[in-house]
């Protein structure tokens, strides 16, 4: 499991961890039933505060991405393909909205945005 955190990143640390783990789950690198490292172990490996990890894990659990089995640890929750796809779509929509919103704020014209968007689609798909 790869967790990318950086001091340069403006997001709070717990959010970075949350995002990292969520990405791994959505990409399928972490499968349902896989065990996550213990909170304290992860804190030690990353050399960051236990509380930070706890918070990230708590949010992941609240978002039903992981479950905690008392005495056993934290595991990736079972989910079906539909749910994963829908989560992915949510994530994409969120990111696109961010970009478009930024474009609008900085005064970029709609047609220019559309142009760029189509260009990228052409290149990637």
């Amino acid at each position: 499991m790869f967790i990318s955190i950086s001091n340069q990143d403006p997001r709070p640390l717990y959010e970075q961890i949350y995002d990292s783990i969520k990405t791994e789950i959505l990409k399928g690198k972490l499968m349902p039933g896989d065990a996550l490292p213990s909170i304290r172990q992860l804190a030690q490996d990353l050399k960051i505060s236990v509380i930070t990890i706890k918070r990230a894990y708590l949010e992941l659990e609240q978002d039903k991405l992981i479950i905690t089995r008392p005495g056993k640890g934290c595991f990736v929750a079972d989910r079906d393909i539909k749910e994963i796809t829908s989560l992915n779509l949510h994530e994409i929509e969120r990111q696109i909205r961010e970009v478009v919103s930024k474009a609008k704020k900085t005064g970029v014209l709609r047609q220019n945005v559309e142009q760029i968007f189509n260009k990228v689609l052409e290149e990637e798909y």
Partner: peptide, 12 residues
């Protein structure tokens, strides 16, 4: 040293 302290805290 910091590593040692983190190791110590593994016991909650």
């Amino acid at each position: 040293l910091l590593g040692i302290l983190m190791e110590f805290i593994q016991d909650e």
